[in-house]
Design a protein around this nucleic acid. Structure first.
Lengths: 155, 155
DNA sequence: TTCCAAATGTACGCATACGAACAATTCTTA
DNA sequence: TAAGAATTGTTCGTATGCGTACATTTGGAA
């Protein structure tokens, strides 16, 4: 790839880069605020809801698995689990077969709680329910391109 | 908008939604890690670099202005400023004309520090320098559609 | 002019979020 | 089998990040 482009091109390309970053940040902020507001209705924070959903989808995960699934560090997940355990939502269990790992699960009351179902149905979809198929396609295409570009740059 | 769609459509639409969220999270993580690594080379964190860049672009901003410019709450920015002041990078000043506001600036050494220039040139652009014009266009289009959708949903 | 509202920034408590260091356990290998 | 390496979680320190409450100052209205 050529580093030194013509000034005009460099200029417009810089502006495009800035626009990408600025748009991305704006979307992230709106999404984050939205999740927090929704989660508060159930008495949780956004990350807590994410963890509950992760456990609902993959019951009896280990902390390590959950950490990778959520894209968060182990120490972060450990802290979130701490607070959910103290609230009686999540159960920590050390299996006899392997006393090194921790098996996590939702407590019985929360496994069959309808609020969780409702919440999972609304969690992601509300935001994008107004999108047409074509819009959705373009959104995904753009994100895929961006992801492939950003993943490759190892500088 | 129709809430109850045909099951098959609902299914694929749900999957698309999940894909959008999952892609977005993945990009955010890569970008965040990248920024932290880059910033560490200069002895700062990501948000600190962001604030320094903001101050470089709009010198002598107030905390309120900076807060809006960065999309962060005032209390958050106040904390970041605290740490940069104690490092001697940022200067807090209460003008006589209006003793309610705080005028922020980069300390002289940092205003003319070439590292800042270099950093600003590399900050955003490294990530996207491999993108073609067409790819860039598609990325921006996708983000714009997503942003307009997500901004409108006021539920 | 005096009182009240608005604006501005800080202090505080809580919940992420990370890496590094650590402890406990299990696996490997010599 | 016994020493060391690898895996798994927790703990700790630091830095965000937010909302609420607060103090200070400024502006406006009666």
């Amino acid at each position: 790839m050529e580093q030194n482009q013509k000034p005009e091109l460099q200029q417009s390309w810089s502006k495009d880069s800035e626009r990408v970053v600025s748009l991305f940040k704006a979307i992230h902020k709106v999404y984050r605020d939205y999740l927090y507001k929704k989660s508060r209705q159930y008495g949780f924070t956004g990350p807590q809801i994410g963890l509950i959903m992760g456990l609902h989808k993959n019951p009896f995960s280990t902390l390590n698995e959950l950490s990778e699934c959520l894209g968060l560090s182990k120490s972060t997940v450990s802290g979130i689990v701490d607070r959910l355990v103290s609230q009686g939502v999540v159960i920590r269990e050390i299996p006899e077969s392997n006393r090194r790992i921790v098996r996590l699960s939702l407590s019985p009351e929360w496994q069959k709680n309808n609020a969780i179902q409702e919440l999972m149905n609304n969690y992601i979809y509300d935001t994008l329910k107004n999108a047409s198929a074509e819009e959705m396609e373009r959104i995904i295409l753009g994100l895929e391109i961006l992801y492939s570009l950003i993943s490759k740059s190892e500088s």
